[in-house]
């Protein structure tokens, strides 16, 4: 009980810190942190699959990139489009794609699932990479930002980096709360059970495939939401957004941060992002550093940063306990 309360207060403090960050930051870091938070949402959505349902998807980038492409396709070149139109359209499109891909994928498990999700993501990648009408390997620009208005009044200006930052922060918090709610609900109980023992879950009367598919669609749609935010904030979408390196990256973020925690993947996004930012000044061979880093994390930190924090917290609590004992 106290452990979860500690976590909750740390998270609140982190959100407060992020809320105050724009006052102390220049535009470069503001946009960098916006990007980290978008990746955080993306990684959090994958955590629902990996950390809670036990489905290791290696094609999650398909949904991230697809949302961006959908936005680029429906946004007219010269006049702005309302977010109230473009967001639902993009999310519905991504959800449909997740439903189709998921329908095939959840029939398989383990290593097959890893490979089939990868294959579907590659299919999406090649489709956009080779489609000249959609920009081919150069990708597409989103020329106008979506407008956010209520009753004719423009309430949020997505052209302003600080506004985008806060919008993304709010989205991050909202996604966290949404997934927490889903995980506490009966549905969450079932998918957690599937991760631990799918066979028994089925024997207890659950059509586990349907629940896995539902989790897949939720996670895919949320990844699409992250992709939408990314496209809005950067104004560009390219095949790189759906490449398997993007799927690999988000997988790394989940493990680095600590799977099965929701907030861990966000930590992972910040940790790897800041590391990149630092290493960039020293060497151009970021991939090499990243690769070695990933190998070291797998070998020595399988439960990620969140796992490390929890271990330290437990050790701290044990020490405090021992210190208190002689007094009583």
């Amino acid at each position: 009980m106290s452990e979860s309360r500690t976590v909750a207060s740390l998270l609140l403090a982190a959100v407060a810190g992020l809320a105050l960050f724009p006052f102390a930051s220049d535009e470069f870091y503001l946009e960098l942190f916006t990007h980290f938070m978008v990746l955080g949402i993306f990684a959090m959505s994958l955590d629902l699959l990996i950390g809670y349902t036990g489905l290791v998807s290696f094609g999650h980038a398909a949904f991230f990139g697809l949302a961006g492409y959908l936005l680029a396709i429906i946004t007219p070149e010269s006049e702005a489009m309302s977010l109230w139109v473009s967001l639902p359209v993009c999310l519905a499109g991504v959800a449909l794609a997740a439903l189709v891909i998921g329908w095939f994928s959840v029939r398989t498990s383990g290593i097959y699932f890893i490979m089939i999700t990868l294959a579907f993501a590659q299919m999406t990648f090649y489709y956009f990479n080779e489609n000249v009408a959609l920009g081919g390997s150069d990708g597409m620009f989103i020329f106008t930002k979506p407008t956010v208005g209520i009753g004719g009044f423009e309430i949020i200006d997505l052209g302003d980096p600080t506004t985008v930052y806060y919008a993304v922060l709010a989205s991050l918090v909202a996604c966290y709360l949404l997934l927490s709610m889903v995980l506490r609900a009966p549905f969450g109980r079932v998918i957690k059970a599937i991760r631990v023992n799918e066979h028994r879950t089925r024997a207890l009367g659950y059509d586990t495939r349907r629940y896995k598919l539902a989790a897949f669609v939720i996670a895919g749609t949320m990844a699409g939401f992250a992709g939408y935010l990314e496209a809005v904030s950067t104004g560009i979408v390219s095949p790189g957004h759906l490449s398997w390196h993007q799927s690999g990256l988000v997988l790394i973020l989940v493990i680095l941060g600590g799977m099965g925690t929701l907030y861990g993947p966000v930590l992972g996004a910040f940790a790897l992002g800041l590391l990149h930012d630092q290493v960039q000044d020293v060497t151009v061979h970021w991939q090499l550093v990243q690769g070695i880093f990933v190998i070291l994390v797998v070998l020595f930190l399988p439960h990620g940063i969140a796992g490390l924090v929890a271990r330290l917290a437990r050790r701290g609590a044990a020490l405090a306990e021992r210190a208190r004992e002689p007094e009583s």
């Binding site: 609900a185 109980r189 349907r210």
Partner: peptide, 8 residues
């Protein structure tokens, strides 16, 4: 059990 909102 496709219930997503109310806590279990």
């Amino acid at each position: 059990s496709m219930k997503f909102f109310r806590p279990a």
